[in-house]
């Protein structure tokens, strides 16, 4: 290995932050899985450079290969740097006395902390707004933002990400990972299947095998449909779902059902994990199966706020509004 590639490698390794080294090398794709495993990433960068230098020498890799690695690293940092710069300058153009800290986590997420002030007051660091944005995805997660700050943040984000507009996803919750998983569909989904799995044998004393089987069948059926609607396994932890209903009265009272105007109500479901509670409602029979689209829309659409109105003159159809 010549002097140029060695120095190039040295300089590059020095620039890449320690926690980024492994993912960047993985993206490079030149090292086999076995080789990657032999590298101890807790070592000093100097030792790492030596180790990588030996590998390069063995493989006879030259400047061409090293510059490839540099490009991979730069492409990523450029995107982040660009976003950082754009966002900061856009926001400070819109509002004075605002303090912005941006940090990138290993999983592609950019965390932004904004302390707001205004023309007269200094930034208030006790009531910051947190924003999480996954680069290359169209999603932004925001905490504690008031109506005054919302348009400012939206504009800065739109300009920095070069999207056209920003839209409320109607999803909120206390657990960041849960709403992220719901929005990005990162949880175990169960797909409808026609044939149910054969029942497992149980050690119970069977009084009447026919009744037993029938009941077990219907409960297995309910469970299957509950999982199809809400997902199987552990579900994202969402605390509530709110429905604003403006639909015609659907009870039995004649004079009320004949009334033209809709009946206005708000229904809120709350639990430590509503998806699990609702799945339990469906599998235990408290909620009829198949689960109504109103409820299964929560995981399906990744939303927990809905406005429901009647769709046209037909009394039996409902429509979800955005």
């Amino acid at each position: 290995m010549g002097d140029t590639p060695r120095r190039l490698l040295q300089r590059l390794i020095r620039r890449i932050p320690a926690q980024e080294l492994k993912p960047t090398l993985e993206k490079w794709g030149r090292l086999s899985q076995a080789q990657l495993q032999t590298i101890d990433f807790t070592q000093s960068k100097w030792a790492l450079t030596g180790k990588l230098g030996t590998i390069c020498e063995e493989r006879n890799w030259a400047v061409k290969h090293i510059t490839e690695l540099e490009l991979i690293y730069n492409a990523h940092t450029v995107e982040l740097l660009q976003f950082k710069e754009q966002f900061k300058s856009n926001l400070s153009e819109l509002i004075r006395n605002v303090s912005v800290k941006i940090k990138k986590h290993t999983d592609e997420a950019v965390w932004i902390r904004i302390a707001w002030g205004d023309g007269l007051s200094q930034p208030n660091h006790f009531k910051p707004t947190y924003v999480v944005h996954y680069l290359q995805t169209p999603y932004v997660f925001v905490t504690s933002l008031n109506s005054k700050q919302k348009p400012l943040l939206s504009q800065a984000l739109v300009l920095a990400t070069s999207y056209h507009a920003i839209k409320d996803a109607n999803l909120s919750g206390r657990k960041f990972t849960a709403i992220r998983d719901l929005l990005m569909r990162q949880y175990e989904q169960v797909f409808p299947r026609k044939f149910h799995s054969p029942l497992k044998e149980r050690n119970q004393i069977v009084t009447d095998p026919h009744i037993e089987r029938e009941q077990a069948e219907s409960s297995a059926n309910r469970l299957q449909m509950a999982c199809e609607a809400f997902g199987g396994g552990k579900l994202p932890q969402l605390q509530s779902a709110v429905y604003k209903l403006e639909t015609k009265f659907r009870g039995h009272n004649k004079s009320m059902t004949q009334r033209e105007e809709p009946i206005r109500c708000v229904v809120k479901f709350a639990s430590t994990n509503i998806l699990e509670s609702l799945r339990n409602c469906a599998s235990s029979g408290i909620a009829s199966t198949p689960v109504t689209p109103l409820l299964s829309s929560i995981p399906l659409k990744g939303r927990n706020y809905f406005v429901i109105t009647d769709n046209g003159p037909g009394p039996s159809q409902t429509r979800q509004q955005n």
Partner: peptide, 20 residues
Amino acid sequence: PVVPPLQITYTVNPQDAWEL
């Protein structure tokens, strides 16, 4: 009574509730 416990809040508009 499901696991975890579910709470349902049902709020009806006063005029509509009265008409019903």
